[in-house]
Simulated scan of single mutants.
Amino acid sequence: MPGKIDSSLPFKPVNIAILTVSDTRSFDNDTSGDILVGRVQAAGHSLVDRKILRDEFDLLVMQFRHWCQDPEIDVIISTGGTGVTGRDVTTEAHLAVYDKEITGFGELFRWLSYAKIGTSTIQSRAVAGVASGTYMFALPGSNGACKDAWDDILVYQLDFRHRPCNFVELMPRLLEK
């Protein structure tokens, strides 16, 4: 049950950066990145930046930190590199940058995914967190996983009108001490 959209409230677009983590993808064949871009824009949000980087821990951490310091970026969504093979380091890069982890995101993603792909969902190490006042979400690289994460979680949590609560309404307080 996703909650409800209160149409009496104004929509507030957020600024989103998308990173595809892959040793083999380019903008010509980045279908999961294309899916996210399409959904972000269809929802009314702004795509501020989009990149494709190799599965290299230091490179990913550097990019995440750079985007987190950019006041024009509210949300970072990465796709790819969340599996269990030796080259899958996106989850570790995210965790290295977070100030706070949002554990419920990964739990909910895997619960929703279980209904579609069964026990194969345990291979996903999808995570989310907050770093320097920026939301960060690490999604698996499959098209289905990107659709599921956006359609079943992020489209609601990144909509200020979603009730009973959402991530956008918390943005002004993310840097409070």
Rank of each mutant, 00 (worst) to 15 (best):
Leu139Met: 11
Arg54Ser: 14
Ser142His: 12
Gly80Trp: 09
Ile77Asp: 01
Ala115Cys: 03
Phe137Cys: 06
Leu47Ile: 14
Met136Gln: 14
Gln69Asn: 14
Arg87Gln: 04
Ile102Met: 14
Pro71Ala: 11
Ile122Gly: 00
Ser32Asn: 03
Val130His: 00
Phe64Val: 11
Thr90Leu: 13
Gly80Asp: 07
Ile77Thr: 08
His66Gly: 11
Ile35His: 00
Ala126Asn: 02
Phe137Glu: 06
Gly104Arg: 05
Ala128Met: 00
Ala42Leu: 08
Leu19Trp: 08
Gly141Lys: 06
Phe11Met: 09
Met136Arg: 03
Phe11Gln: 07
Ile117Pro: 02
Phe109Glu: 12
Ser142Met: 08
Pro13Tyr: 08
Phe64Trp: 12
His66Val: 06
Ser78Lys: 03
Ser142Phe: 08
Ile77Val: 15
Ile76Glu: 07
Ser142Ala: 11
Leu59Met: 13
Gly44Ser: 06
Asn15Glu: 08
Asp58Ser: 15
Thr90Cys: 12
Ser120Glu: 03
Ile16Phe: 02
Val14Ala: 06
Ser120Tyr: 04
Leu112Arg: 15
Tyr135Ile: 02
Ile52Glu: 13
Gln41Asp: 01
Ala115Met: 00
Phe105Gly: 07
Phe137His: 04
Asn15Lys: 15
Val130Thr: 03
Gly83Ala: 02
Ile18Asp: 10
Ile16Leu: 09
Ala96Ile: 07
Asp55Leu: 06
Asp55Ser: 15
Ala126Gly: 03
Phe57Ala: 01
Pro71Lys: 13
Gly81Met: 02
Lys12Cys: 08
Ala115Glu: 14
Trp111Cys: 04
Ala138Val: 10
Trp111Leu: 11
Arg54Phe: 10
Pro10Phe: 10
Ser32Cys: 01
Ser32Arg: 03
Thr119Lys: 07
Cys68Phe: 09
Arg54Ala: 14
Ile18Glu: 12
Ala93Tyr: 04
Ile18Met: 12
Pro140Val: 04
Glu56Ser: 08
Cys68Leu: 13
Phe105His: 01
Lys51Tyr: 12
Gly104Asp: 05
Glu72Ser: 14
Gly133Gln: 00
Asn15Thr: 10
Ala115Asn: 07
Ile102Glu: 02
Gln69Cys: 12
Trp67Ile: 07
Ala96Val: 08
Trp67Phe: 13
Val97Ile: 14
Phe105Ala: 05
Glu56Val: 14
Ser78Cys: 09
Asn143Thr: 14
Phe11Trp: 04
Asp28Arg: 05
Ala96Glu: 15
Lys116Arg: 14
Arg54Pro: 12
Thr20Pro: 10
Leu112Thr: 02
Ile102Thr: 02
Arg87Met: 03
Arg125Asn: 10
Ala43Leu: 07
Gly106Pro: 01
Ala126Lys: 07
Phe64Arg: 09
Ile122Lys: 02
Gly129Glu: 04
Gln69Gly: 15
Leu59Ala: 15
Leu139Cys: 14
Thr119Asn: 10
Arg110Asn: 08
Ala43Ser: 15
Val14Tyr: 09
Glu56Cys: 09
Ser124Gln: 00
Arg54Asn: 13
Val75Leu: 12
Gly133Leu: 01
